[in-house]
Write a protein that binds this DNA or RNA. Structure first.
Lengths: 163, 163
DNA sequence: TTTTGCAATGTTATATTATAACAAAAGGGA
DNA sequence: TCCCTTTTGTTATAATATAACATTGCAAAA
């Protein structure tokens, strides 16, 4: 085992801190890159961080509507596109939904553990998984460009609850 | 490296044989299980096998229209649902599309190498990838139920062409 | 300071993917 | 044959995503 960088937070963790830290990291990164974290983009990122469960695009849309002027789909999709390009957000393919990136800064394809009970999604980065994938691809002479690794199951908290 | 069970076929491989074998395996499996491989289901499976690139549901719909009476979306989605339940077809999440399963018979979540140039998709089953994923999940006390592993990149044939 | 150009957002419309709900038909065993 | 269950047909609509073009606004060049 190597390189697990995020984990399932306890339900009572300091979530305000999560959000604040994610936003300040994002601001720093964008500033450093000359990328513009505009109000809409910032708001979308903030919403995504308000829970550890992926948000669908239209769910974000509704949430934005409640807070701001009426927002149309392209606005949300553009914000998501920007945030993904900056490595601040990942798309969860099996859910058609989006989560804040737990380790922004360096480009990476996330690996995700998704709880089918509560929806909470943990981003991991296992060097072993990476290595195994590269090996397998290599064996077929396949040149890897990006990976989608999404594991569905039961998170520790939901399992505890079921006992 | 262990357990790679499919690979990128040469463009000139005996494709008729691919299709015939997949269909006869499917028939045998369904017969053994008392599952009904009806004409529509069989046709969908056959279409999927007619190439090694995933088919979108509406693409299947068009293909069916050309051959049979007019077919509606639920018909295709039901056939796909059945075929997936029987382990004869996999869904490729990053494409919203479907491919025939290279190793039907035992239940498994496929691992896929998807060529971004030609779309050809190879199903693999790397024991190392499985083990690494289980390890990583275990470390977070996460109980795995299913996996989605989709690697995008360049297949050997497309890479050769580019030289 | 004004201009200009590009990046971001607004707006309308529509494409693409997927499912709900109910009706009809077809197959298979009592 | 009858009945029950599975499968398919049909209509409508939900959910996700993007195209295309107009407008705004920021920021650097002139």
């Amino acid at each position: 085992m190597a390189g697990v960088a995020s984990s399932f937070q306890r339900p009572d963790h300091d979530h305000v801190h999560c959000v604040a830290e994610a936003l300040s990291k994002a601001e720093a990164l964008c500033r450093a890159r000359g990328a513009r974290l505009t109000p809409i983009r910032r708001k979308v990122l903030e919403l995504l961080w308000q829970r550890h469960e992926p948000f669908g695009a239209y769910e974000l849309l509704k949430a934005l509507d409640r807070e701001e002027a009426r927002v149309m789909p392209p606005t949300v999709y553009r914000a998501l596109e920007f945030l993904q390009a900056q490595g601040l957000v990942h798309r969860i393919e099996v859910r058609n939904a989006y989560v804040g990136c737990a380790q922004p800064g360096r480009p990476h394809a996330g690996q995700f553990l998704i709880c089918k009970e509560c929806g909470v999604t943990a981003e991991i980065q296992s060097a072993n998984v990476d290595a195994a994938l590269l090996d397998a691809a290599d064996a077929l002479d396949f040149k890897v460009e990006s990976q989608t690794v999404e594991i569905t199951g039961i998170c520790p908290h939901c399992r505890d609850e079921k006992i």
